[in-house]
Nucleic acid binder design. Structure first.
Length: 196
DNA sequence: CCCTGATTCGC
DNA sequence: GCGAATCAGG
């Protein structure tokens, strides 16, 4: 496969929307996530908003033996990525038939992400216990401090000072940390089982 | 171990 | 230009 205009276009679009390299690779087909990342860099649009997770620092390492060649190549530098005007998303359901919105997965704009707070009686006791436990070690972030990688589970009453977002490391592909994913994404089947 | 992106470098 | 291998990290 080669990078046709169309494929590059898709790449740009998805990258701009905050899709991961592997997701893009999967979408395009015929390429690995490495290929996608490599292309992204060559296109000069490496940094995305908020800088994804583990970026920003990759220390150069010497190759073991077969690296004695060129002295050193100075690294170019700063590329300003600007745009992400519009977003158009297709539903896309996951295995459980739960819609995954890329908009939600992407950056939280400025509005309130406020996910639904499920009624306690519909959540498994184990999951609830886990949440209560986790909330003690939560980072307690403010809305402004949220990124794509911080758990966006709100805690407390927004009308009081006792309100914050979990802020722990998110579960991959989800807007929440492991514990909160547990209460946020209850399989339909288990809900029914418990209710009855 | 799953995943993420970043970098290097032979091709 | 391309992307596998490798690295650094959640």
């Amino acid at each position: 496969m080669s990078w046709t205009d169309e494929r590059v276009e898709t790449l740009k679009k998805m990258w701009g929307e905050g899709q991961s390299a592997s997701q893009i690779a999967k979408e395009l087909g015929g390429v690995t996530r490495n290929a996608v990342i490599g292309k992204v860099h060559r296109l000069g649009l490496s940094n995305r908003a908020g800088s994804g997770g583990s970026a920003a620092k990759a220390a150069p390492k010497e190759k073991p033996a077969a690296a004695a060649k060129a002295p050193a190549k100075p690294k170019p530098a700063p590329k300003a990525a600007a745009p992400a005007p519009e977003k158009k998303e297709e539903p896309e359901l996951d295995e459980n038939g739960i819609p995954i919105s890329a908009a939600r997965r992407a950056i939280i704009p400025a509005g309130q992400p406020l996910p639904p707070q499920p009624s306690a009686n519909e959540i498994s006791p184990e999951a609830l216990a886990k949440v209560n436990e986790v909330e003690k070690s939560a980072k307690k972030l403010t809305l402004m401090e949220l990124t794509e990688k911080t758990c966006k589970w709100p805690v407390g009453d927004p009308a009081t000072d006792d309100f914050w977002f979990c802020g722990l490391a998110v579960q991959q592909g989800k807007p929440y940390c492991e514990a909160h994913v547990g209460v946020a994404f209850q399989p339909m089947s288990s809900r029914r089982d418990r209710r009855r």
